[in-house]
Design a binder for these strands. Structure first.
Lengths: 210, 210
DNA sequence: ACCTGAACACCGTTCAAGT
DNA sequence: ACCTGAACACCGTTCAAGT
């Protein structure tokens, strides 16, 4: 018990993995704005400069955090399914993964925009689309479209969640359900609808090319 | 001539409009990272604290900058066109507007994600889609899908432009055209393709509902 | 109506040196 | 292999006071 590495012992030595673990904890509990190098260092009982032994800079660290969030999106490869179902399953799994950490979408969005990280999210979409045996250019552009929609939708969604929890009064354009559960259902529906639009569009594309 | 307000005279008094003008100039010449309150103040020959008379905080200022970038997207309302053409025209106009300022997409993306700004971009898509007389929920979800795709695609695109200009070697996944012009064409094509996917999907939706 | 001056409470990053 | 100590060059924001 008392020998556990995760206890409050000081002057523990750390690995990259420990640093990312601690970063994820700060992210989830306090949000991206509070995820500073200095704060991260202090939760690890270490000087800020120590972090630069593990990571070249903050962006690289955030890319590693992003990779871990995305990697959380498990989908058991259910063997035989059509590309459309596969894409839908990946989209939901990735959305769930992003939603499972505070500001998760924003972290992944910015790492993705900077071209950092392992690109697993794009890879997942690409693999699912590949089941449809499209032209390679179509496959690439479609995967990017799914990913852009996913990140844009979920980051907006998480932003609204945070605004709500702070009781911010946003000028109520359109209907705004009062009940949180109802709102969550609405978000998921509009996400699914966007995914459906893209899938339907890609299906049409395959008929055109035929 | 020498009485012109935009000359190098000091201790000029400024309006919100002047501040946004100056911010846009810094954005375009030096990028978002260099658009700090202190730097902005110094180009206006003013103390940083003076900016807080015009804007509540930096995010609000950036939202005003975002609004101006989006407002640059002119499309003459060509009278009678179908919703699909109207959406395509808006998408291209908005992309051009974002591309006309360095880091334009990122600025608009983050203001949009924070729910700040006037929401003109979403309004433009919504108005175009409305020509198709869809269900209101469909209209809203589709407009959001177009906007998310737009912002995601263009911010990624601008990121690559900047990486290229810095000579960064990104692990060449897939074919990477060497010639800049060719690459620009590829970007525009994959943007148009994404827009086409969404339009085709929405067209199918209208048949289903019929 | 618009700005100054001074301060507060922070940042990310570098680098020689330690163990 | 991993970290300290100290420094550098910055940030956004507040607020009393000035004109």
């Amino acid at each position: 018990m008392t020998t556990d590495a995760r206890s409050s012992a000081r002057s523990q030595r750390h690995s990259r993995i420990d640093v990312v673990d601690a970063a994820l904890a700060i992210l989830d509990e306090h949000g991206l704005a509070d995820l500073t190098m200095r704060r991260l260092a202090s939760t690890l009982n270490v000087q800020p400069s120590a972090l630069y032994w593990h990571f070249e800079n903050k962006q690289t660290l955030l890319a590693a955090v992003s990779d871990r969030i995305v990697h959380r999106a498990h989908t058991r490869g259910d063997g035989e399914t059509d590309w459309a179902s596969a894409v839908r399953i990946e989209a939901r799994a990735l959305r769930d993964a992003l939603l499972s950490f505070r500001d998760g979408a924003e972290v992944v969005l910015s790492s993705q925009a900077l071209g950092l990280g392992k690109g697993e999210a794009l890879g997942r979409f690409t693999a699912a689309i590949r089941l449809g045996e499209f032209d390679e250019r179509v496959e690439r552009a479609a995967a990017a479209a799914f990913l852009h929609f996913l990140l844009g939708h979920v980051s907006h969604e998480q932003q609204r969640m945070q605004a709500d929890s702070l009781g911010v009064v946003t000028a109520a354009l359109g209907a705004q359900p009062s009940d949180a559960e109802e709102r969550a259902r609405g978000e998921r529906d509009s996400f699914d609808f966007g995914v459906s639009l893209l899938i339907a569009g890609l299906a049409v594309q395959s008929e055109v090319a035929r």
